[in-house]
Design a binder for these strands. Structure first.
Lengths: 211, 211, 211, 211
DNA sequence: AATGAATGAGATTTCATTCAT
DNA sequence: TATGAATGAAATCTCATTCAT
């Protein structure tokens, strides 16, 4: 019994490990080549498995990307939740800064680039948002949380009440353009910390309440 | 001879008119469906010409998009040049504001969406920037001019010297995300004027020199 | 004008000729290898054209077969109509005999084998009848006509009123089994005329009214 | 030793039981979905065993079908043998009628449909008959026995000597078209007994010697 | 012995591009 | 010059079969 269970657990563990490996590799390839220029064949080859094995884990190319995006989004959502539920002594700015910081240091540089790619690419937006209910939902949750922080900042007098929250929200998401990351961190060797500091400076000064 | 010449001129004129029509139509279709979901067939059908005729003007689908982008970029560049060469009485902020205004009202809403799409889509960036020398050049010129205005603003004490110009530059380009346009102007019915006002408020307050 | 028209006519003629060639070749290959073991690639290769060209004429493999079957069925239906609308001096038996004769001599041996294949193969019945409305309709028309002749024969006292018409109908279709053709004409070198004579003998004696 | 032997016997018995279960289930699935639309996966799932286990019993999908067909054919052959070796007081017609009756009531409705499917489907004929020596042999034996009865009938003056035995034979097999069964028993709710009566009426009147 | 994860050949289908008319 | 029929590379996805556990 125990053995059988242990066996099943081992298999399941291996299965999940492989699934994670596929997700990881696929993400890299998608980021490197873009969605349309990436073939399942290439992903399989890079993982070192057969084409059919990918389909054993993900029923279609679309589903594979959705799985990657969902995973990324959930991690990001968790970071946002952590920020939101931080001790109330944290100001709205500090919460947003911590989100931004999380995005650029570690998470962004490694795994969220595809996420941002999709967000900023009208091509792929059309492709996924319109098809996958689940993705729209997650985006919605994300936006709701950030929006709440922005409203909170307005209420406490930190942020400028004259600027619509939806504009602030969009501007916040724009700070995380993969293009910016590419140009400054990859291209000009700026450290993510420095980048996030400066972007934050612009953004938070920009939305600050006028005294 | 004269007749022949006149004939050739007429033909040439017709040719150019048709080329413009192809560019205009193609731009619309590319914006509506995205690059990968647009077929040459569809463009030709919409223009009302044969598929082969498109190839008579543009050697490939790629080149067609590059031509569209180039045209858009040249128009944009001209607007930037107008701002730059404005009477020196205009401050750097005022110059950038006028560029932003040009972008969103009229130009952006009509023709620059593809341009911005490409700028913000890693998929297409890779596709075009890496392949087409000419496009990199134009981007370079554009960046150089905006950068000059930003430096000028720093010199006159308008802008914060502590923020690297390259960060300011990227943030400026981010203001023009097609996603923002889509979400706020198309989605929430905000007027382009209002949007540009609020975005400008954030950006210019954000990069303003600290007093 | 005339020229243009002539031109279009020529093109159209060539197009139709090619389409017929595809139909003819495809029919042969389908009969030789069966539906599932025939690939579009093979058909194209046999016609001596590219794979895509087949799709230019028929949007899918399924549609290609439906086109073949429809054509065959229409020809067969015409033969049945000719028999039905024959001078009333012809008895019901004579009409059915002429249909049987048409089926086996000429038409059947060349083009109706796929038709009969489908009719007698449960695999393909399921595949096509359930999907293609148009095919069910044609079968229905065919059955209706034969049924009418059978009823007529019963009315005139030629055929046995004790046997349900639907049984007679099914038995009639069974006379045309491709298996029978294969076994006797191809296998045992019996002439189609001889075969049809003997089958008719069995069938018409079998359904004859008892005296 | 004895124990080991008993063990082996038990195992063997279980093995055979499972094999029969696979055959039975596979037959059902093949009849329901057709040969090409049935996957080994589905059969295994329905039996409740792993895919690999099916391959432990049958080296290929093809062999599995051949095993089913062979079993069906052997049962059928036995029925024919019983008819052939019946007391000589039975006329040839009576023997054939009993075969027909056996076919339609009980055997046919339950298990012989795949057999008939194959017989009447050129697709599958090609597939199996040409490949599997064993199947051709069994068909041959079957045909030989029926043929013998037909010849006997001719000799005793029951059947028409003018009709070639091979035509009679084919017509006899045609009586058992799955299409007929489908259309009349399944479709029109005719009882198998009624159907076989009417078909027999046609056939035996049809091949009867002319008086 | 039994399993089912892994495989990869092969099928259908799309569409940018070419070229004869 | 303008056309669109023809092409075929390449992509996604299926499933019979193998084999390590």
């Amino acid at each position: 019994m125990q053995a059988a269970h242990g066996h099943r657990t081992l298999k399941e563990k291996q299965r999940q490990e492989r699934e994670q490996l596929i997700l990881k590799t696929a993400e890299e390839v998608f980021i490197a080549n873009g969605y349309f220029d990436t073939s399942i064949d290439e992903i399989a080859a890079r993982v070192g498995i057969g084409k059919g094995t990918v389909y054993l884990h993900f029923p279609s190319k679309e589903d594979l990307v959705v799985a990657i995006l969902t995973r990324d989004m959930e991690v990001f959502l968790q970071a946002v939740d952590d920020a939101v539920s931080a001790p109330p002594s944290l100001t709205a700015s500090e919460k947003l800064k911590s989100i931004l910081h999380f995005m650029y240091s570690g998470f962004y540089s490694k795994r969220a680039r595809l996420l941002s790619s999709i967000y900023h690419s009208p091509d792929l937006q059309r492709f996924f948002m319109q098809k996958k209910e689940s993705m729209r939902e997650l985006w919605g949750q994300l936006a709701t949380r950030i929006r709440a922080i922005l409203e909170e900042g307005k209420a406490t007098g930190e942020f400028d009440k004259g600027i619509p929250t939806s504009v602030m929200l969009n501007a916040f998401f724009c700070l995380q353009s993969p293009r910016t990351y590419e140009a400054l961190v990859v291209g000009e060797q700026m450290s993510p910390e420095e980048l996030v500091t400066h972007l934050g400076e612009i953004y938070f000064k920009g939305i600050a309440a006028v005294k």
